[in-house]
């Protein structure tokens, strides 16, 4: 049962990911990207990462994708801007690179040195809000505080960039 859900969900994720880059209309692309993200959230739940799965839906599929949609609608693209979306010149290069990368990944996974620990005993709070929060505010407190600097820089940067006249 678990395997069946995994196969179905990952198929949805992969097909939607393919459709993201094959669409001409960026709005359709965004919708397929949301589909991929939700499918990945289901995979996260299977991996007992409940908090991250909810964050994935709220932050990624919700906030970031809405930002994308806003910008696409703001740009007011005309139909001819969609154009032929594939650069034919680079297609062989892309396929070659992709094959190399994929084969490399599969070989690396096949020969991976990671000891398989199926069902490593997990604590009761594994992946819950409580568990992630505790890690975030104890072991990883310093990187967590640094994130605030990153966000301030991002806010300033986007305001400066989008301004009409500096």
């Amino acid at each position: 049962m678990e395997l069946a859900i995994f196969i179905l969900t990952s198929l949805v994720a992969i097909v939607a990911a393919l459709l993201v880059i094959l669409q001409r209309n960026p709005i359709a692309s965004v919708m397929y990207l949301v589909t991929t993200f939700v499918a990945q959230a289901i995979l996260f739940i299977q991996l007992r990462a409940a908090f991250i799965a909810i964050l994935q839906v709220i932050v990624y599929a919700g906030a970031i994708m809405v930002l994308f949609l806003f910008v696409i609608m703001l740009l007011n693209l005309r139909r001819e801007d969609f154009g032929k979306d594939i650069k034919l010149k680079y297609k062989p290069l892309a396929v070659a690179f992709a094959m190399v990368l994929l084969i490399e990944t599969l070989v690396a996974i096949n020969a991976s040195m990671i000891p398989a620990l199926p069902g490593a005993d997990l604590s009761a709070t594994f992946g819950s809000v409580q568990g992630v929060g505790k890690e975030l505010f104890t072991t990883y407190l310093y990187p967590f505080e640094l994130t605030s600097v990153l966000l301030i820089v991002a806010i300033l940067g986007s305001v400066v960039m989008a301004k009409k006249k500096l």
Binding site: I14, A17, L18, V20, I21, Q23, P26, S29, F68, V71, I72, L75, D81, F82, G83, K84, D85, I86, K87, Y90, K91, L93, A94, V95, F97, A98, L101
Partner: peptide, 14 residues
């Protein structure tokens, strides 16, 4: 798939 998209797509949003 993401890498193919970066190489092949023409629309900057994609």
């Amino acid at each position: 798939i993401g890498m193919i998209g970066v190489i092949v797509a023409r629309n900057i949003i994609i």
